[in-house]
Nucleic acid binder design. Structure first.
Lengths: 229, 229
DNA sequence: TCTGGCGCTTGACAATTATCAAGTCATCTC
DNA sequence: GAGATGACTTGATAATTGTCAAGCGCCAGA
């Protein structure tokens, strides 16, 4: 059956509470697309014709200005993106490229807007999703504006360590050069910042990060739920 | 009549399309509060009990971490704030203080959530408002991540000059020290950046900014609708 | 197994930005 | 009008961050 292809997203917060009819209306015009690694799938400024959902793989959102570029977010299954542009029927503010081979579900923006009008549960879910995105953006801005690059890295390590279960180590989910860009620093500076974290209980071996002394790290990073939560 | 107090906000995008009944439900528990200048009216981390609307005056949103603080936005009539926290029923991510004497309309968050459930026009308006806020935050992040402090200032001047009608001059709406914080730089650095803008067609006299050569300024600032629009 | 490529690291240096200190200027108060 | 206050500016210096260049090491493909 046709809509089976989309069963995997039926239980996402965005769709969990909507009617079968609404879900059918959303998936009717939707399709799945596979992308090889390192493909730019969206270019900022283009019209936002689809809501995108990461079904598998990993996506980088980034932006460019005057021959420099900066990573803004990394997405994993089942993150959505381009929601705000879809709603407002405005061009993308960010470009997107695959980090690895990825499968993307694309729902036409017009269908989103149509169902949004008819299904108040969907409208509610969209509001919640947008509110989460907005608060995430504010947190990220605070992170950049209030902390030095070394502090940003320390908090990145502390946060991902906890997220991975505080087992004493975790694997970086992206290349260090992309991490550097995400944290608003150069790869060279990231290298030195990792070296500096040795004094705060962190050791590095390739993409494996070892947290030898979580308390010492937290004492330096001073994580805050209003920035890192 | 009681609800007359709130007629001034009836035509805001957030309320323009909603029913009289919904508007009455929103304003029933609402009230107006006057604040003197330089009062911290909201502290980050507090629960978001009200949606706030600036009726008059000027509000600064800012955030603190580890004895440093940073301005994130300046609000004017009739901007709204705390919408995302209201929706999500989460604590404020930013503090707010008055820049000048201000009048604030406060609508209980619970009423917002109630009417949101019942009135789909209101839900739609909220989504649009949130989408605008989100896109604004992303633009601001791009501004910080992709540009130097001098470039940020140049674009700030160019944007506000256009907004003021491109008449060759405009008044800074806030103190320079606050502007510096907003642009992620120190007051000293802002002073020097203004001095540097003389080479690009900008002169400064107190809080009056004179744009002698708009084309020259734009050539340096390279404004971009995906950041400054 | 060798080898080229590329990401990462390190060092030296440069640019940007922040800090500290002093001085100017306007405004407000008394 | 005198004095105090505080914002702003300017200069000197320091810290942070970026740039350029070279070398290391891992991995993929020949």
């Amino acid at each position: 059956m046709h809509s089976d292809r989309f069963q995997e997203i039926r239980s996402l917060p965005l769709f969990a509470d909507i009617s079968d009819e609404s879900f059918a209306a959303l998936t009717r015009g939707a399709y799945v697309q596979n992308f090889p690694p390192h493909i730019e799938m969206i270019t900022e400024g283009d019209p936002a014709d689809f809501l995108h959902i990461v079904a598998s793989g990993r996506i980088e959102l980034f932006s460019s200005w005057d021959r420099s570029e900066s990573s803004i977010a990394f997405l994993k299954p089942y993150d959505t993106f381009i929601l705000a542009a879809t709603i407002k029927d405005r061009p993308y503010l960010m470009s997107a490229r695959t980090v690895e081979k990825s499968r993307i579900i694309m729902i036409p923006s017009e269908d989103i807007r149509t169902v949004f009008e008819r299904d108040s549960d969907f409208a509610k879910a969209i509001v919640v999703e947008l509110a989460i995105c907005y608060r995430g953006a504010i947190k990220q801005m605070k992170n950049i504006k209030l902390r030095s690059s070394a502090e940003r890295l320390a908090n990145y390590v502390a946060k991902h360590h906890k997220r991975a279960g505080s087992t004493g180590s975790f694997e970086l989910p992206v290349e260090k050069r992309k991490l550097a860009s995400f944290l608003s620093m150069t790869p060279e500076n990231l290298s030195r910042a990792f070296a500096a974290l040795r004094d705060h209980g962190v050791e590095v071996s390739g993409s494996l990060i070892l947290i030898k002394d979580p308390e010492k790290l937290d004492a330096y990073a001073k994580p805050n739920s209003l920035i890192d939560g």
